[in-house]
Each structure stands twice: as structure tokens, then as C-alpha cells.
Design a binder for these strands. Sequence first.
DNA 1: GAGCACTGC
Length: 952
Amino acid sequence: MAQCSVLFTSEKPQAEPKSLSDKPTKKPSETPSSQPAIFIPVDRSPDIQEARLKLPILAEEQVIMEAIKENSVVVLCGETGSGKTTQVPQFLYEAGYGSGNYIIGVTEPRRVAAITMSQRVALEMNLPQRVVSYQIRYEGNVSNKTKMDGVLLKEIQKDFLLTRYKVVIIDEAHERSVYTDILIGLLSRIVPLREKKGSPLKLIIMSATLRIEDFTNNKRLFPVPPPVIKVDARQFPVAVHFNKRTPLDDYAGECYRKVCKIHRMLPAGGILIFLTGQAEVHSLCRRLRKTFPFSGKNIHNVTEDDDSQEAVKRFKKSKPKKTMNLPKIDLASYSAQPLDEGDEDREAADDDEDGSGSDLDLDLGDGEAQEDEKTDSSLPLFVLPLYSLLAPEKQSKVFLPPPAGTRLCVVATNVAETSLTIPGIKYVVDCGKVKKRYYDKVTGVSSFRVDWTSQASANQRAGRAGRTEPGHCYRLYSSAVFADFEQFSLPEITRRPVEDLVLQMKDLNIEKVVNFPFPTPPSADALIAAEELLISLGALQEPPKTGRLNDLQKAKLSSPITALGKTMASFPVAPRYAKMLALGRQHECLPYVITIVATMTVRELYVEVDRPAVSDEEKELLKGKKARVLQMQRIWAGQGSAQKLGDLMVMLGAVGACEYAGLAPKFCERNGLRFKAMLEIRRLRGQLTTTVNSLCPDIQLYLDSKMNPPTESQVMYLRQIVMSGLGDHIARRIRAEELLDEKWKNAYKTPLLEEPVFIHPNSALFRQLPDFVVYQEIMETTKMYMKGVSAIEAEWIPVLLPQYCHFGKPLEEPPPFYCSETGRVKCHRPSTFYRVGWQLPAVVVDYPEGLDRYKYFAMFLLEGKVIKKFGSYRSVLLSTPIAMLKTWAKLQPRTEILLKALVSENADSLAGLLAAWKKNPKYLLSELCQWTPEAIHEDISKAWPPIQHDED
DNA sequence: GAGCACTGC
């Protein structure tokens, strides 16, 4: 699950920290505790006390605590900077909500937030970290490094009523992360249950923006709307300036011009620019550095950065540095009035109408007037890129003060909107766009699109200019365009596949997921698709195939979880991958499956090397690096048939090599691997290994840093295991003879897409073009590209993925046969792949259920293939065994009699036959006598049932 | 022959 929890207990350390992960054996003391009249003294240092008093929320302590006392659910609304995250838990602690072995639980959407919050609270209250602890995905500091996995959702799985908690705080609920949504849904049911038990649980929902209707005005969630308390934020006013005209598509160019003007005309203060992607960020950085170069010597190791190298070089050639000469306009006396929270819209709109024309906004203009890209080294600008995939050491540069005499300018993506706060920002330049991932609900194809952002997030961006002093936000679009923005962006849960959530919820025994009180429910399509996939994977029970259509539809959305599903739910990965793990134990493949799954789960394994270079020199450098990376990938792709595992083999090789090199950052750097990704993979492998060991204690798996490459046959099993998880991600190559249209050249067909899909050019199988492949995902860019591709064999499909196949009538040639290993009648059946009807090779499967299976079984029985003893009567049989199959069989009563006897006891396999004999030792005796001359009936009868001899 | 925002168990 996605949350990071901060556990917040009383001073008394827990006697048994482990009990958190076990089922609580004894309930906490049942003292009625809805109104704790306790006051727990806290010993804060004077300077902390002083800093706290400045927080607006401290004035609200009374109101907040009264509301919590009187209500079981409270919504607390306050912008960032109000101090609610750090202060509310302290209020609760002081009021005694954390005493008596109870826990105050706080969930944060991000790991860093959970860690810093717990540290901050511990510091402010002068409490040890064992009292204020955190737990996140792979680690935690709960009571002296007790290792724990799973957080609040996992705890609900173990103890649905959360009996150890007296308060749960959901922080940043406005971000609407999938798991806060589900937690709120679950807690809305747990709270009244706890009320009934006389040991109430308090739920506090903390949200920043005003988007709270989904929580407060949602009868299904909370029949009685919870009270809302608003808290002021300590935020400085931000004047918002709109462009008069909105650039059609060159918002990056408009950004550049606006930054130039700000830097030339406005007083000191950092600039933060919001763009949509890595490439844009780098390109704007280059342009700005070119225009306002500065000396990077001895500052922040700038020389490590490829882009800054350019700036440094340029500077060395340029004239000695002049002092920065900035105009001295007092921006604090700017026409804008202070901005209260939530007033930004009005403020912004006013500003556009009467503000422009007389103030700085006009001076800065929308300007395409001057295209001045001439170098101006008198005004050094310290330009830094910032995006999530940037190496952490490069990211952290934005937190340091810029070199003396320069102005900080951060060119960022959306990371800077919520995840990272940059100090000293006075100017925000907002292009108004975001890049978002889209999923096609029907086909599952992903794509990235750049779109207008929402009003809420534009305001969030503007707010970044007022953290340390009054600021300005320049929006590169008109107020009319802003007015057309969506008020809020859609909650994540409505925009992504939900199979992982559905599985988790089924594991909580919520069978009818449609009825769950989601703050915003996912679409019915998404829920149906999830349920179908989980049924195909065997994680949910297949609904009955008979019944009325209406009932079927209903049953479809309420399938209970299977044992396999329970196993899968315990792995913190996507259900398709969890299936691979569940199968992975065979042939000692598990360490490899764990590594492959971990690698597929962690995003962006490789660093971007395709960035356009600034100089010829850099171009050569990048080219060399790229060549080396490609060469390594060829090595990792393996030899011979191992290559068929394709991109997953490359991943396995990369991780193996990296681990062998001791997870060294240098190794990653040289081979184009993203160090942070490698760390994550290591941690996830560790967690998956732990989970496997806890599921099957006999297996005693450990994390091997010197993992040998898989053998050839293991690679084949791996391909089969991978295919079993990706059964709905199969593609078939269009062969030359089927080619009707050039656009299908080298293309693949998938069951759900009409258009051709292609193997991504970076794939190890790009040139191989296997007939059948499975893929991790399809990403639509200029074409539909499959990524994470492995080759599979057509004949595996009907055997390993029968749920996706239609089977034809059993073939007469080769004829059905009796399989002595399984004791069952087998046959060859032709098959086709569902929907698309691809011909697949005929495979040996169990003979389909029905009368014919009994006929064949009877024949094999008479032939002595099932039971040896029967063979001894073979020569004296009154009819030939093959008579069982003939159309005229009915004319011979003995065939009918035998058949009826078998059918009556379901004896169409050895197991069935033995069971029947166990019930009735005389079973089948008279029927066999029909087939044999009377002379030997007595002999037969004496040796009946004829099995003991076979068992020897 | 490309072009991925941001999170998490």
C-alpha cells in the first residue's frame, strides 16, 4: 500500500513491538476513553516553543480538540504552512489520545514526508524516536528497527477494527492518492463499528485545498457530514499575473522570454519555472545559461553536470565577472493585496482586469517583441534543472543558496508542485501545462499527453512563490483560459487500472467492490476489467457459467478470492507479477522470478542518454556512452536460446552484474543504469524474498548478490512463468505472407487492438521479431510500442493459458490415449486464441468431460491399459473393446451396460474407478461378466476387485 | 528506429 505511517504512541515503549504485525492476542484495556480529560505534560525547548507560537494553528487548538472530542470524524482544512501536519498529532498526544498503549496513527503519502514529520515531531516534543516512529515500504524505525512490512492497510487486514489505535490521521487527503481514498472508505465503516463496541476511533482527515465535498458531501461515505475546521496558513501574498494572450504551443519559448524579463527587471529572489518534462527542462536550462552565464568555479560541484560544464567553459572565455546590477523596485508595495487562502482565484481575476496596464505585469508583457538571446554575462543566473528522475545529488542543489551575486533559477516539472519545496523562491513562472499518463480502459494502452493543468494545481504552483516573502506568479496564459481549467484534476483512482486495488480489497473480504464507499469510485468499466483479469489469473473464483444473464453480470463483480489470490495479495506488486511469483518456485527459478518482478516494478532502469547535445564535443561523449551502454545490454541479453527471454533477460543481466559489482554507483554510472533504481530493486527483492519465506518457511530463500545466470532450461521455464502472468499481453507477428498493407510491416497484432503494434527499437528483440511475444506494456508515442518484451512459443499457450483459448473437438489422429501417470484419458485438441482466433498447435489435454470420455475410458479399461489384470481377459472378450466407440455400440447391450455403470459412479479416470471400488467392492463385476464367457466368471469373481495386484 | 509527469505496499 502507498501510505507511510507515522506511529505515535505513549512514552511507555511497547512491551512487544512484534505484536503489531501479529494478531493482537489481548485487547487493549477497555477503559471508556472517548473523552480523555488527561493532560500529558511535554517538555519542549524554549526556542521550539517560540517557533510553535508563530504557527496560526496553535490559536485553533481549542477549537480543533473540541471538535475531535465531540465528533468521530473531523475534516481539517488548511494550506501548506499552517503547521497542521506537525502540530495536530502533538495536540492529540497532550490530550491523552496516545496513552494507555494506544497509538496515534498518521499516514503521509510520501516516504520523505513520513520520515521528516516523525523526526520533527520527536524533536519538537523532546521525545525519543521509539515513541514517534515511522514505517515505510522496506524499512522503519518502529521500536528499535523492528522490521515490518505493510502499513495501515496491511494492519487493517490483520485487525480490521484497528483496536490498537485511538486516532487515525489521514494527511494530504486532497492529493487523492488511491490508498488514502481506500483508507478513508474503510475507516468510514470502521469508525461506527468501533463506536458500537464502546471504544471509539477518531478519524481526522487533513486536506489542503478546498476540495472537500467528496468527503463532506458524500452520503454513502459519511451519512452525517463531518464538521470542517479551517486553519489559516502562514503564507505570504502572491500576486498573480496573467498573460493577455495565450501562446498557441510555444510555451517553452514564452517561458524563456518571461524569465529573461524577470531576471533583467525585477529585484533579487529565486525564480521557479514549471514545465512538463525532462527534455523541455534541459532545453530551457541550456538557453538560459547561454543567455546569462556565470562562473561555476568552486560552487556546488557544478562541473559534474553536463549542462553546467558548457556554462563554465563559456564563462572561462568570457570577460571577468561584473557585479550584478539589479533594479531596486520594492515589490512588497506592489498593488496586490495580501492573498488569503482560497482567494487566489478572485485575486487573480481582479489582477487581470484592473491590475494590468499600470504595473509590472505590463512591463513584463506577453512579449515576443525582443528575441534577445545575446549572452549577457553581467547578470549571472544560477540555472538548475529539477525533475523526479534526476539523480538525488543533483536534485539537492536547489536547496542550497545560490552562489553570491547570482540569482537562483530552477526549471522544474511537477515535482516542485507538491513533493519538493525550494527555499527562497519569489517568482513563479507557470506554463499552465502538465504531462499526464493516460490509460485506455479498453485496450490498456498507455500514452503521455500534455494538457492544461487544473485551477487547484495552478494555485498550488503560485503558492510556491510565497513561502519566505511576498511573491509573484506569472501565468503564461490568460485569465479566460484559466477560467476554463478544470477546478480540480480527477482523482488518481479514476484514471488508472485498479486490478491491484480490487485484489487487495477482495483480500479484505470486500467481495462486492462496486458497493465500497469510495470517496470517488473508479469507473464500472475499470472494475469489470480488473475482476476479469483477476479471474483469468486465478486469483478470483470463476463465476458459474450457467444462469440468467443478469445473475451472471452480478456474479461477475462479486467473485470471492481464491487461495492463489490470497497468496498473490501478499506480494506488494501488480497481480500479473504476483502470479509469476506464485508460480516461481518450480525448477529453482524463484530468485530469478523475484529479480525480474522487482525490476519490472521499479520504473526507469536506465538513465536518459539520448538527450540532444550542446556541443560537438558533448555529442561525441554521449555517443560513446550510448555505444557502451548498448554493448553492455547486448552482453546482458545472453547467448543462444537465453536471448528469447528478451528484455527481461537484459534486466536480469543488468541487475545481476550490478549486484556482482557490489551495487557500486560507479558501475551504474558507467553502464547507464540509474543508481536509485538499482537500490529500489535491491530493496524490493529483499521484501519479496521475506514474503516468500514467510509464505513457505521450508524454502529458506536468501538474497544472493552473486547470483549465477540462469541455465538454458531455467530461462525456458522463466519464459513460461512470465507468460503465465502476462496471458492478456500476447502479441502475434504478422508474417510476410499475410501482409496486406505496408503499415503492418514488422508489426504485431494483439487481441484488443485493431492497429499494428511494434517492438520498441530499444528492445533486445527489435531485430529478432519472434512469432509470438508477451509484453510488459504498450506505450503509444509515434506508434504503438511494446516494451519489456519476451518471446514465447505458440504451443505453450493452450497448455499454460487454457483460460484464453477455445478448444476444438478432440482429434481422431493422433487418437486419444490413456495416460498412466495421471490415470486419465488424454487427447489432442486443436485450439485457437480467444477473440482473435489465432490457430495454435494441437495440444495434449484431458479428454473433455462427457459421454465420449467414458467410452474411451471403458475401451482402455477393457484393453487392460488402466488395470493390468484386465489385460488377462483380453483374449477371451466377447466383443472387441473398440466396440465401445462405434455408432452401432447400442446394438450390443454389454457396451451400454458398462457405460451406464461407469457414468453412475463418475468413473472416467483411474481415480474415479478406485473410489467406486472403495465404496462397493463388487462394482463393475457383473458388467465385466457380460463381456466374458461364463466359464471364467468364477475366476473373475474370486479375484475381484482386481486392484490389489496392480498396487504391488 | 525513439522522446516518461508524479507517487506507493
